[in-house]
Amino acid sequence: RPRTRITDDQLKILRAYFDINNSPSEEQIQEMAEKSGLSQKVIKHWFRNTLFKERQ
C-alpha cells in the first residue's frame, strides 16, 4: 500500500480534533474521515503516531 500524503487542509482538521481530544470515538473518526477525505485507518494511525510523539 502506498504511503498516504496528508495535505495541509487535512492536517488542520486532524489537529483541531487532536487539540480537543487526543482519543476520538469511532463516531468522531468517521466524521473526520468524511470531512478530510482520509480513510478511518489513516486517521487512527495518525492519532496513534501523534500521541506517541507528544508523549516523548
Rank of each mutant, 00 (worst) to 15 (best):
A16I: 09
V42N: 05
S39L: 01
H45C: 06
L51C: 08
N22Y: 02
I29M: 09
I43W: 00
A33E: 11
L51K: 10
S23V: 10
K41V: 07
Q28K: 14
I20G: 11
N49H: 15
Q10C: 04
E26F: 14
S36G: 04
Q40N: 05
P24A: 03
A33R: 13
R48T: 14
L51P: 07
R48G: 10
S25T: 02
T7G: 05
Y17Q: 09
K44C: 05
H45R: 14
Y17A: 06
F47M: 08
Q30F: 02
K12S: 09
F18I: 03
T4A: 04
T4W: 00
L11H: 06
T7N: 11
E54F: 04
L51A: 12
L51R: 08
S25F: 02
F52L: 12
K35C: 02
M32Y: 05
V42H: 09
Q10A: 02
G37S: 06
F18V: 06
N49E: 14
I29D: 01
Y17K: 08
N49A: 11
D9I: 11
M32N: 00
I20L: 10
E34V: 11
L38R: 01
K12W: 02
T50V: 09
Q10P: 00
F18A: 11
R48P: 02
I20H: 07
Q40I: 09
I43C: 03
Q30E: 06
I29S: 02
H45E: 14
F18S: 07
A16P: 11
Q30T: 11
S36T: 08
R1M: 01
M32T: 01
F52Q: 12
N22W: 02
Q30D: 02
K12Q: 11
P2R: 09
P2V: 14
S39Q: 00
Q40K: 14
Q40G: 06
I43A: 02
T7K: 03
N22H: 03
L11P: 00
I6P: 08
L14M: 07
Q30G: 08
D9Y: 10
K44V: 05
R15N: 09
I20E: 13
F47G: 01
Q28F: 02
E26Q: 12
E34C: 02
D8S: 13
K44I: 04
P2A: 07
D8V: 11
Q28V: 11
E27Q: 15
E31V: 11
I13D: 03
R55S: 12
T50F: 06
H45P: 05
T4I: 10
I6Y: 10
W46L: 04
I29P: 00
R48M: 08
K41M: 07
K44W: 03
S39K: 14
E34K: 07
M32H: 01
F52V: 14
Q40P: 08
R1H: 05
E26M: 11
I20M: 12
N22I: 15
V42K: 09
W46Y: 12
S39T: 07
D19R: 12
W46P: 01
E27L: 05
N21F: 05
N49Q: 06
L38K: 00
K41F: 11
E31H: 08
Q28W: 02
D8W: 09
K44E: 11
R1K: 00
N49M: 08
R3I: 07
P2H: 15
T50E: 14
I20D: 04
F52W: 06
L51S: 08
D9A: 14
D8M: 14
R5A: 04
N49F: 05
K12T: 10
Q40S: 08
I13Q: 13
F47D: 01
P24S: 01
R1T: 07
I43S: 00
A33Y: 01
K12E: 09
Q10Y: 02
F52Y: 11
L14H: 00
D9V: 06
L38Y: 02
L11C: 02
D19G: 09
Q28P: 01
Q28T: 11
S36H: 03
T7W: 00
R3Q: 15
D9M: 09
R3Y: 13
S23F: 12
F18T: 12
R15P: 00
Q56W: 02
K44G: 12
W46C: 02
V42E: 13
E54I: 02
I29G: 01
R3K: 12
E54R: 08
W46D: 03
D9H: 13
Q10T: 04
N22P: 15
R48A: 10
S36E: 04
R1F: 03
N49W: 07
A33V: 06
T50K: 11
Q10K: 02
I6S: 04
E54L: 11
F18L: 14
W46G: 01
D19T: 08
F52S: 09
S36W: 02
K53M: 08
A16W: 04
I43N: 00
W46K: 01
S39G: 04
R1C: 11
N21Q: 04
N21W: 08
E26T: 15
N22R: 14
V42C: 12
R55K: 15
K35N: 04
V42A: 12
Q28H: 10
E26D: 09
I13W: 07
K12V: 10
D19A: 12
T4P: 07
E31K: 14
L51Q: 15
T7V: 05
R5H: 14
K41W: 07
S36I: 09
P24I: 03
T50A: 12
N21H: 08
L14W: 00
K35M: 03
L38E: 01
Q40T: 05
E26R: 13
T4L: 12
R15T: 09
Q56M: 07
E26V: 10
S23T: 09
G37R: 11
Q28L: 08
A33G: 14
E34I: 05
R55D: 06
K35Y: 01
Q28Y: 04
R55Q: 11
Q40R: 10
L38M: 12
I13N: 05
G37P: 00
E26S: 09
R55T: 06
T4E: 08
F52K: 14
Q28A: 09
P2M: 15
